[in-house]
């Protein structure tokens, strides 16, 4: 039990401290793909350290909610990171929340961030908040149905359970339902974490922003918390994609050997996904805001096919 809880805490901390590096890795890969030298992958750590040491400037129109939101966003994302299986399954924390809890915890962060965007009364913040919740709402059905697909083949919405069942039945990992659900979740990941083609994480033009426009007012340590939470959310989606669909390498018992293997395999999965995102972001252009629903409905159709195919093929 103690070992179990310590493992959970270690997982959470690992995810927390790895997250900025993953964002940095994607940026570095993108720079290389643009024939640039680029900043090293650990650049985001420097940026976070800098932000934590800077002053905070707050609008005079902002209320207590503006000060509360970064903490809610950070804490909820961190809670998700503790729940999801990073290295080992099944852990006791599995019982705190299942896949649905993960989705709604992330939504909790979005809710507060959107409110904080509206709080200082700037038009940019309102615009960002409006777009962010639109995208989040439209991504929701895909998420739910993809969860349905996973749950029906695993017989459970518990994260550890899903990973364990797929390990036990390797063939199910290449079943059409599984692959379709993976594709659907991948698209949702792009939308939810504000990557191309839904949102450009490097944009400077307010009118094209989604996520960035909401946090235009934040500075210093608050901004650091929000950026860190965003990076963590990105990693959480990597973990979901990597460990629920391709659960091999996860430690089934808490031995040193198993955990070391898990760390190694986890690193490989993260790098592979980071390369995929970087290549994709080099290849595609940002979609017009009102084309995003089309992308999301495509992902929904994929998810729906995933569920029905697992029924038809059963």
């Amino acid at each position: 039990m103690t070992a179990d809880l310590m493992m959970a805490a270690a997982q959470g901390l690992l995810a927390l401290f790895l997250a900025p590096g993953v964002v940095g890795l994607v940026r570095w890969l993108k720079a290389r793909l643009q024939n640039r030298r680029g900043a090293p992958p650990w650049q985001p750590y420097r940026e976070l350290r800098k932000l934590f040491q800077k002053e905070v400037v707050v609008s005079r129109h902002a209320s207590w909610l503006f000060h509360l939101a970064p903490f809610v966003v950070f804490a909820s994302t961190l809670a998700v990171a503790v729940i999801v299986p990073v290295l080992a399954v099944p852990l006791l924390v599995d019982r705190i929340g299942d896949l649905l809890v993960v989705v709604y915890l992330l939504l909790l962060g979005t809710f507060f961030l959107a409110l904080a965007g509206l709080d200082p009364g700037s038009a940019f913040g309102g615009m960002g908040a409006s777009r962010e919740v639109t995208v989040a709402a439209l991504a929701e059905p895909t998420l739910a149905v993809a969860i349905f697909a996973l749950a029906r083949s695993a017989g459970s919405t518990n994260l550890g359970e899903i990973a364990a069942r797929t390990t036990a039945d390797p063939l199910s990992a290449v079943s059409p339902g599984h692959l379709l659900a993976f594709a659907a979740l991948f698209i949702v990941m792009l939308a939810e974490t504000g990557r191309l083609p839904v949102d450009n994480p490097a944009t400077h033009l307010e009118l094209t922003m989604i996520h960035e426009a909401m946090v235009l007012e934040y500075s210093g340590r608050y901004l650091a918390l929000i950026e860190w939470a965003a990076a963590l959310k990105f990693l959480v989606f990597f973990i979901l994609l990597g460990n629920l669909f391709v659960p091999w390498g996860l430690a089934r018992a808490l031995t040193l050997e198993a955990v070391m293997t898990a760390v190694g395999v986890f690193a490989v999965k993260v790098v592979v996904l980071a390369v995929a995102v970087a290549v994709l972001e080099t290849r595609v252009a940002k979609l017009r805001l009102f084309r995003v629903p089309e992308l999301l409905s495509a992902s929904f159709v994929l998810a729906l096919l995933a569920v029905t195919s697992s029924f038809l093929l059963r």
């Binding site: 940026r27 720079a31 640039r36 030298r37 680029g38 900043a39 650049q43 420097r46 940026e47 490097a202």
Partner: peptide, 8 residues
Amino acid sequence: DSERFGIH
């Protein structure tokens, strides 16, 4: 490539 110096 200003980004290599951590400038963005």
